[in-house]
Design a protein around this nucleic acid. Structure first.
Lengths: 214, 214
DNA sequence: TGTACATCAGTGAACGCGCGTTCACTGATGTAC
DNA sequence: TGTACATCAGTGAACGCGCGTTCACTGATGTAC
């Protein structure tokens, strides 16, 4: 991984650009090394084409960089799911599309997905904790609760609250996403088949129509 | 973490004992450090009361130790689930008990659980791959398929095969176990409520009896 | 019964490495006068 | 218009550390004769 030879120093007042470049380089590198623990400052700065100490102008320490990566990653995750759901007005179809996009995101960027969903706030580990403010994934979960609620409003048949059902859906999605990454040697059923079966079992398939069109 | 002061050298021919002591020490340490990546040879041998090079008499390298930990961990996992299911003859109750024991195992030893279920065969990472022979978790999954099949034989109502249903159950359990560890700040519903709801949704609750006893 | 020797569990020092972080610095560029 | 200076993005060398692994070794114990 050589330095991009042509990187020029940012002009005065534009030093902040390097901050974003470092985050993007970290995410790119994450796909190669497979684990946030392997994201060393030296590797990230080298991938961004600067020397290691240059990082400290933008982040006080390594953990701060990783936290920024997590926030950036959740942003990308939310955008991917919203984009998938934007293609339909039917709440059941929207939820199904969100679910498929969820698993697809994890399949495309497994190391980033794990960093967002399993490395965060795990004791003294790499990323550290988010003491103040909401957890960066809170918005994503809230989107899911809302998507489920729209299905309930449209007549979905579940005895549970939208919160409880959202937990059920999230659990299924995380299990599917994480296990498929962890155990690639298993003969997993196709994702859409699996997601459809899961949503149906949870009462989140479209209910039978009361009337037929003529 | 000081050396246990009293450790005596094993007698001739009993050098193999240290092998087990190292594995046990590694699992104990795993609970403290929280991640298999942090299981350094020096930390493990120190916890076992020997010098670092002593490990090489029993394992060719670090990865071999970690693989032995995984095998040992799957053994303990299987025993915990079997013990939980041994208390009943009803297949639905047996499956439910297995599920609760699954999540309990993960809650009690989160780092070990992760090592078994998410670190294995993840590219060039800590543990390495299991090229030859069956995956050490294969037996556990097979037990689950059998437990599901017994429910089907007892009249469970699912349109799917026992393999597919076992994938559904496993996905739910892994999702629940892993997310609860990763996001402890979430207001998770009680495990037994959640597992009961999940098994019911999957058609794995006891079917209504045809006849009543008089 | 005594002794030389082979076996073997484990040690202590050392290696080269990549790490996060610090420090004093360089050199281009905008600004004040 | 020219020049001294402040600003600031980024550098290069160095630090102390823990790591996996190697090497030559120690010293207790069982065995052959």
């Amino acid at each position: 991984v050589d330095n991009p030879p042509g990187r020029a120093r940012n002009p005065r007042g534009q030093g902040g650009r390097l901050r974003d470049e470092l985050i993007v380089a970290a995410i790119r590198l994450l796909a190669d090394v497979g684990d946030a623990d392997r994201l060393s400052i030296r590797a990230v700065t080298n991938a961004a084409g600067v020397s290691a100490p240059a990082l400290y102008r933008h982040f006080p320490d390594r953990r701060s960089l990783l936290r920024a990566v997590v926030e950036y990653g959740f942003d990308a995750f939310d955008r991917a799911l919203d984009a998938a759901a934007a293609g339909t007005t039917d709440p059941f179809d929207a939820l199904r599309r969100r679910c498929l996009a969820y698993v697809a995101f994890a399949a495309e960027q497994p190391a980033l997905y794990r960093m967002l969903f399993t490395a965060t706030s795990l004791g003294p580990k790499a990323v550290g904790t988010y003491g103040r403010g909401p957890h960066p994934g809170a918005a994503s979960f809230n989107d899911l609760v809302n998507a489920v609620q729209r299905c309930l409003d449209a007549g979905a048949g579940s005895p549970h609250t939208s919160f409880f059902i959202a937990i059920q859906v999230w659990t299924m999605l995380h299990g599917a996403a994480d296990l498929r990454t962890a155990k690639p040697e298993m003969p997993w059923p196709p994702v859409d088949t699996f997601v459809h079966a899961g949503l149906t079992a949870l009462g989140l398939a479209r209910p039978a129509r009361r009337t037929h069109r003529r």
